[in-house]
């Protein structure tokens, strides 16, 4: 039976899609069977970040409306063979998603996957609610910034009241905090919320801290999930987080400003 994981945040643009792509790829690289679903109907982007945009034929709405079968809409990743992607529709509106339809898709995918990742759209409207409804676990993506932390708190409340687990009075959705775009240099200068402050306020277990890194833009330019870039600090931080998710004890890294060597201090150059 698969675990359903929602990647959510409330606030837009904090790194949900980047994290969904990295996590899905990272889990698949560890030999797990993974499918990642884009719930951002009308504004799909996961296909671009995963680099499969040229191969999208059908999408989740086609499947829900019976126009295509699920296995036809799934795109198999060419780099990691246990990974597949279910794209969102770009042309329909969010009302095309139904609870029953999504439930059937998840049930079907659960038969032959270990993990089903749901990349949530921003907000707390229909698309976001459906993305989290079936979740067993939630990765709450948070930036070190006041509005992001507040919205994360809001989405935690939604998880605790509007998820299927909450409705069925089962064990609650297991929550994980993933802090992204963390810039230790700015934290040190007192310009950015500290990790400890975020942890204290949200009070959920910490899964990982992904540093602000130039390699994330490079990864999206080329359509390669950043976790595949072994030199990137963000990629390494995602890899660590995947290890922790799988129950390994991995120390947190990249929490302190990078000590710059004489050459990089002379010639510039920021975090890889």
């Amino acid at each position: 039976m698969a675990e359903v994981i929602v990647v959510t945040s409330g606030k837009g643009g904090v790194g949900k899609t980047t994290s969904s792509a990295a996590f899905a790829t990272g889990l698949a690289q560890r030999g797990k069977k993974v499918v990642v679903i884009d719930f951002d109907v009308g504004l799909r982007n996961l296909d671009l970040i995963m680099g499969v945009e040229r191969r999208v034929v059908f999408d989740i709405v086609n499947v829900i409306q019976g126009e295509a079968r699920l296995n036809q809409a799934l795109i198999r990743d060419k780099r990691v063979d246990t990974l597949s992607i279910l794209p969102a529709s770009q042309t329909r509106d969010k009302d095309a998603l139904t609870k029953e339809g999504v439930g059937q898709i998840i049930e079907e995918l659960a038969k032959d996957n270990d993990y089903i990742l749901c990349d949530s759209p921003a907000g707390i409207e229909k698309g976001a609610l459906l993305a989290l409804y079936f979740a067993d676990q939630a990765i709450v993506v948070t930036n070190p910034e006041v509005s992001s932390v507040r919205d994360s708190d809001r989405i935690l409340g939604v998880l605790q009241s509007k998820s299927k687990r909450a409705e069925d009075k089962k064990d609650p959705v297991k929550e994980h905090l993933l802090v992204t775009r963390y810039d230790p240099a700015r934290v040190e200068k007192g310009e950015m919320l500290k990790l400890d402050d975020i942890r204290e306020i949200l009070a959920i277990p910490l899964l990982g801290v992904i540093p602000e890194s130039e390699s994330v833009l490079r990864a999206s330019n080329t359509g390669t999930p950043v976790v595949m870039d072994a030199e990137s600090v963000a990629g390494q931080a995602y890899k660590d987080a995947v290890g922790r998710f799988l129950g390994e004890k991995v120390e947190h890294r990249f929490l302190e400003p990078q000590k710059k060597g004489i050459f990089s201090r002379l010639f510039g150059g920021r975090a890889a």
């Binding site: 833009l217 490079r218 330019n221 080329t222 050459f263 990089s264 002379l266």
Partner: peptide, 18 residues
């Protein structure tokens, strides 16, 4: 030479093409 990073093709052109 001193940047100690192997030169990579600029990724922005790939972004544009895609």
């Amino acid at each position: 030479f001193f940047k100690a990073r192997k030169p990579e093709p600029a990724s922005a052109s790939q972004a544009k093409e895609r």
